[in-house]
């Protein structure tokens, strides 16, 4: 766990705070969510104070300045949360959407800052990938709402926070130069197609997960049910996932000599793709007869994506593969 007290880090934390506030503001049980947010903010602040006091008493555990930085960040985040919660609590209206848009703006700013720092499109390592994913959440939510009629923006905001957490607190942020294998015209389209598809399919999986337990949000029988919403979003994401896979195969041929090298990351990306292929065939066979099974396919797809994206890189279980530079 590391705290980043840089321009980039502060931007990321600001995005997380804004997404959290937006999630609370957009949640169906607003007052309860906002109260929880305010409590979270206060708990954060209390944790910071306690941490600082402990560090003062036992400085041998941690360099004092690191504690100060960590506490500073926690306190700023807590203040942002509390302020946002307070502002939203007082008024109805489009506050959630505004907060979400502000979060996206901050994330886009962080992405631009990173691009400038790295000197290339910031899609090389896990920090940059998660920063990009967090930035994409806002526009994808608005797109789904506008073009697909799929709501649940509050959950999207929380997905954004979950995605940004490792960028803000786990992954190293040192910019790296592009190795020869990544200097290709396919670098940006291949990774960007995958990033877009991952965020879209994460939203589909969250909807599908809720669909495992309930038919639809609220009591309105006219509202689009979770399974149908998840299906619409999955249909948006699957072509992007296919594009990412195909561009990866093309790039593999150009860079390594073969479009398929049986590398662990390639194999997991195939598993991800096959999960959605299986979903569409299953749904073609049974339609909406087995709604929960349909939803389970989409949740399984996200699990495969998470393994593709995270496990292969982080567990070191498959270290030494061709994609090992993407850690």
């Amino acid at each position: 766990m590391s705290v980043k007290l840089t321009t980039l880090g502060i931007l990321i934390y600001a995005v997380m705070a804004l997404y959290l506030a937006a999630g609370a503001a957009l949640a169906s049980r607003r007052r309860a969510a906002l109260a929880a947010l305010a409590v979270l903010g206060l708990a954060d602040a209390a944790a910071a104070v306690i941490l600082r006091a402990l560090a003062a008493a036992r400085p041998e555990f941690m360099p004092r300045y690191e504690v100060a930085l960590a506490c500073g960040i926690i306190i700023y985040a807590a203040l942002a949360l509390a302020l946002a919660a307070g502002a939203v609590l007082k008024r109805e209206g489009p506050a959630g959407t505004v907060l979400f848009a502000a979060g996206f703006a901050a994330a886009a700013a962080a992405f631009v800052v990173r691009w400038d720092q790295a000197g290339h499109a910031p899609l090389q390592n896990m920090f940059e990938v998660f920063l990009c994913l967090g930035m994409l959440m806002g526009p994808i939510t608005l797109f789904c709402r506008r073009f697909l009629g799929v709501r649940l923006e509050g959950a999207d905001a929380l997905i954004g926070v979950i995605i940004l957490f490792p960028a803000g607190f786990v992954f190293k942020a040192e910019p790296q130069r592009l190795p020869p294998a990544l200097q290709s015209f396919l670098f940006v389209p291949h990774v960007a197609a995958y990033m877009l598809s991952y965020v879209v399919l994460a939203k589909a999986a969250v909807l599908a997960f809720l669909g495992l337990f309930r038919d639809r949000p609220g009591a309105d029988p006219g509202a689009l049910d979770y399974a149908a919403s998840a299906d619409r979003v999955a249909r948006l994401g699957f072509p992007l996932l296919t594009l990412g896979l195909v561009l990866g195969m093309w790039w593999g041929k150009i860079a390594w000599g073969d479009y398929w090298n049986w590398d662990p990351k390639e194999l997991w990306s195939l598993v991800s793709w096959l999960a959605y292929v299986g979903y569409f065939h299953f749904r073609y066979m049974f339609g909406q007869k087995h709604r929960r099974a349909n939803c389970a396919w989409l949740v399984a797809g996200l699990v495969a994506i998470a393994i593709t994206l995270l496990w292969v890189n982080l567990a070191r279980l498959f270290a030494g593969g061709l994609h090992s530079y993407a850690t």
Partner: peptide, 12 residues
């Protein structure tokens, strides 16, 4: 594919 990813691991 999952089995292939596992047996392709040098660490494992």
């Amino acid at each position: 594919s999952a089995v292939g990813a596992l047996i392709g691991s040098g660490e494992l």
